[in-house]
Simulated scan of single mutants.
Amino acid sequence: MTAIVCLALSAAAVVIAVLRGTRGRFRSALRWAAVALVPTGLYLTGLITVFDRIGRALGDWAAHLVFDPKVWTGVVMLGAAALLLLATGIRRGRALKPSEPAAEAKGRTAPPAVKGRTAPPAVAAKKPYREDDFSDIEEILKRRGL
């Protein structure tokens, strides 16, 4: 029965792929052709039976969840562990604010100036890297007139 269902799903996807291809939507046709391979591939590799076993095991677990106090004790213990981890903070240390100098954040002061010398100018704090920061790319494009 499973083989018939998988082959029927694959055949339906092939029909949709052919219809899309005849209308000139070749990219969509290729996607549907790829989808057509999935059900039969799952059946031939035996993964359908694996998914069936996983589904039954999850169903049995869910049925026992309602009536079994041992399972509820485990759920409470997992919830308490998650709350404790969140309350204590998973990350160590704290992030520096962009306006906060590094010396102040560590509780140290800058070294005193040697007699006759002045302290070097403070290095401007680099702004933190962000993935959506495209200012460098925009500057290059502006220089090239694009």
Score class of each variant (00 low, 15 high):
residue 3 A to R: 10
residue 4 I to S: 14
residue 8 A to M: 11
residue 9 L to I: 09
residue 10 S to E: 04
residue 11 A to W: 05
residue 11 A to T: 11
residue 14 V to P: 00
residue 14 V to Y: 08
residue 17 A to Q: 02
residue 19 L to C: 13
residue 19 L to M: 12
residue 20 R to A: 15
residue 21 G to V: 00
residue 22 T to K: 10
residue 24 G to R: 05
residue 26 F to H: 13
residue 26 F to M: 12
residue 27 R to I: 13
residue 28 S to W: 03
residue 28 S to T: 15
residue 28 S to N: 13
residue 31 R to F: 15
residue 31 R to H: 11
residue 31 R to C: 14
residue 32 W to P: 00
residue 39 P to F: 02
residue 39 P to G: 06
residue 39 P to N: 07
residue 39 P to Y: 02
residue 42 L to I: 14
residue 44 L to S: 15
residue 44 L to M: 12
residue 45 T to E: 06
residue 48 I to M: 09
residue 50 V to S: 13
residue 51 F to M: 14
residue 53 R to T: 08
residue 53 R to E: 06
residue 53 R to Q: 08
residue 53 R to Y: 01
residue 54 I to C: 04
residue 55 G to Y: 02
residue 57 A to R: 01
residue 58 L to Q: 09
residue 58 L to K: 03
residue 59 G to E: 12
residue 59 G to M: 08
residue 60 D to W: 01
residue 61 W to P: 00
residue 63 A to M: 05
residue 66 V to K: 14
residue 66 V to D: 10
residue 66 V to W: 09
residue 67 F to G: 15
residue 72 W to T: 07
residue 73 T to S: 15
residue 74 G to F: 05
residue 75 V to T: 12
residue 76 V to I: 15
residue 76 V to Y: 06
residue 77 M to K: 09
residue 78 L to V: 14
residue 80 A to C: 13
residue 83 L to A: 15
residue 83 L to N: 04
residue 84 L to V: 15
residue 89 G to Q: 06
residue 95 A to P: 04
residue 95 A to K: 12
residue 96 L to C: 05
residue 96 L to V: 03
residue 97 K to E: 07
residue 97 K to G: 05
residue 99 S to D: 09
residue 100 E to W: 00
residue 100 E to F: 00
residue 104 E to F: 03
residue 112 P to T: 09
residue 112 P to G: 10
residue 115 K to W: 01
residue 115 K to Q: 08
residue 118 T to V: 09
residue 120 P to R: 02
residue 122 A to D: 07
residue 123 V to C: 00
residue 124 A to G: 07
residue 124 A to T: 14
residue 125 A to H: 03
residue 125 A to Q: 10
residue 125 A to I: 03
residue 127 K to C: 01
residue 132 D to W: 01
residue 133 D to A: 12
residue 133 D to R: 11
residue 135 S to N: 14
residue 136 D to N: 14
residue 138 E to M: 13
residue 140 I to R: 15
residue 144 R to H: 14
residue 145 G to S: 11
residue 145 G to W: 06
residue 145 G to K: 12
residue 146 L to I: 15
